[in-house]
Nucleic acid binder design. Structure first.
Length: 447
DNA sequence: TCTGGGGTCCTAGGACCC
DNA sequence: TCTGGGGTCCTAGGACCC
């Protein structure tokens, strides 16, 4: 599209690097099973409601793309091999990918499993040249992992990301066209790049925003550069307007953030056949609560907020959330709250998706302190330890029961027409089964 | 063609406190 | 008697990214 200058930029002209593994999930599957090489392969849900998460370039030649419904993908490519994801495997590759980036610089920020931004500025004194560093990364990722990737370089995240996209192979008329592998947006060419881009190419502009912009007659990034920000804000919100106008002028204040803090965990499940009725939904919530609890404990976090999301067959969604004065990480505690939230939702229509999310994290140790009211559960005195733990358990169960009552009071259980089924069912689950799960074995005190 | 599952961020309104 | 703003937290919904 655009000529890359033959210069060799310094870190000052190309401080930000973006690297993106090609067709990551599909490529890992092919590495693990070489008989798949050269065949159209996709990773994703193969069922009626599945979508493609990753497609090999062989599959892309048929028009298969990620986020495409599998039904459509199969129609375009009848020989498509759709594999379920093996995320443990992808995570293992991702860690090795990050290790290679870390050898270049510790100042990197992963996005998902297959992308990384890196800040090269600290390499200035080492006289590292960005183009050589990028080529070195590609060589190591190929020789050590067997994976292809594209690298973009630019003055900020905006240009680095646009450049890495440009570096990739593409499919033109069903034929694969090699990419450059490494692309640098020189500061002198920034304006030229932006002028040729549709608004949809900008980070944060999806289908909905693109449609709004289109209505305003804004189709190209160069159009956005001329628009009045206050007017735009009236249509897309203040934050979006401000970022879009900045991007259109080539400015991007986003930094490379090394240690992002996790803010929520959750589990979503789309059912092959939609669920009908409260019992079926609660049964599904039971296994989801266990998944969320495991994830929380894996992160050594407890969550104060539990959110339940239900999506109906017409794709409308409703959510209910409850914030507790204390954190939880136990599956029966999460289920007790989730169950009360589910009961507040009108389930007259069948449910295609159920999700449970946990957020507002506390450090587990802070939570223990809060719950044990000054007693030290790590005490060397076994009696104090036992009392602290039993206080914790009691407080948790009482507080949890109060929280469940809060949900019911807030939403009015009679209003949803399931009052007769409720009784103290949820609470009994908590006290009978929750007490064992709140027992001493479940607590992790100290190191 | 009919839309997953893991997340992040933004907005707007209401409650509450000072 | 009627009426302040500002700040923070919570909730519900929407949009977006990989």
């Amino acid at each position: 599209m655009l000529p890359s200058p033959s210069e060799n930029p310094s870190v000052d002209d190309a401080p930000i690097l973006h690297i993106d593994l090609d067709a990551f999930f599909a490529s890992v599957e092919i590495l693990d099973d070489p008989t798949l090489r050269g065949k159209p392969v996709a990773v994703g849900g193969g069922g009626a409601r599945g979508v493609v998460a990753s497609a090999s370039y062989e599959a892309r030649r048929f028009g298969v793309r990620s986020a495409m419904p599998s039904v459509i993908a199969r129609r375009r490519c009848p020989d498509l091999i759709i594999l379920p994801g093996r995320f443990d495997r992808y995570e293992a590759y991702s860690r090795r990918f990050h290790d290679i980036v870390r050898d270049l610089t510790p100042e990197y920020e992963p996005l998902g499993l297959d992308e990384v931004f890196a800040n090269l500025q600290s390499l200035r004194r080492l006289e590292v040249r960005p183009l050589q560093a990028a080529a070195g990364l590609r060589r190591r990722i190929m020789s050590e992992l067997g994976l292809l990737c594209g690298v973009g370089l630019g003055r900020n995240k905006l240009f680095a990301k646009l450049a890495s996209k440009e570096s990739k192979p593409t499919v033109v008329d069903g034929e694969l066209v090699e990419g450059a592998g490494v692309v640098w947006v020189s500061p002198a060419l920034e304006k030229q790049w932006l002028d040729e881009l549709p608004v949809r190419a900008l980070w944060g502009v999806g289908p909905a925003t693109a449609a709004k912009l289109q209505k305003l007659g804004l189709r190209w990034v160069r159009d956005l550069a001329k628009v009045d920000e206050a007017t735009l804000a009236g249509h897309v919100g203040a934050a979006m307007a401000s970022t879009l106008v900045a991007y259109a002028h080539g400015e991007d204040k986003r930094e490379v953030t090394v240690d992002r803090v996790l803010k929520s965990v959750g589990h979503d499940q789309t059912f092959a056949t939609s669920l009908r009725g409260l019992d079926a939904v609660i049964e599904a919530a039971r296994s989801q609560a266990a998944v969320v609890a495991r994830a929380l404990r894996g992160q050594n976090r407890v969550a104060r907020t539990i959110t339940v999301i239900v999506r109906f067959d017409d794709l409308t969604s409703v959510s209910r959330s409850q914030t507790l004065p204390f954190g939880i990480d136990d599956e029966f505690a999460i289920l007790a709250i989730a169950e009360a939230l589910v009961q507040s939702i009108d389930l007259a229509n069948s449910v295609r998706l159920l999700a449970i999310h946990a957020s507002s994290f506390l450090e587990r140790d802070d939570n223990n302190m809060q719950l044990s009211f000054g007693l030290d559960p790590t005490s060397s005195d076994p009696r104090e330890q036992a009392e602290a733990i039993s206080r914790e358990r009691q407080v948790s169960n009482e507080a949890l029961r109060d929280a469940v009552d809060d949900v019911r009071e807030k939403f009015g259980r009679a209003a949803v027409g399931v009052a007769s089924e409720l009784g103290h069912h949820g609470i009994e689950i908590v006290t009978q089964r929750g007490s064992s799960s709140f027992g001493p074995d479940e607590f992790q005190h100290g190191p």
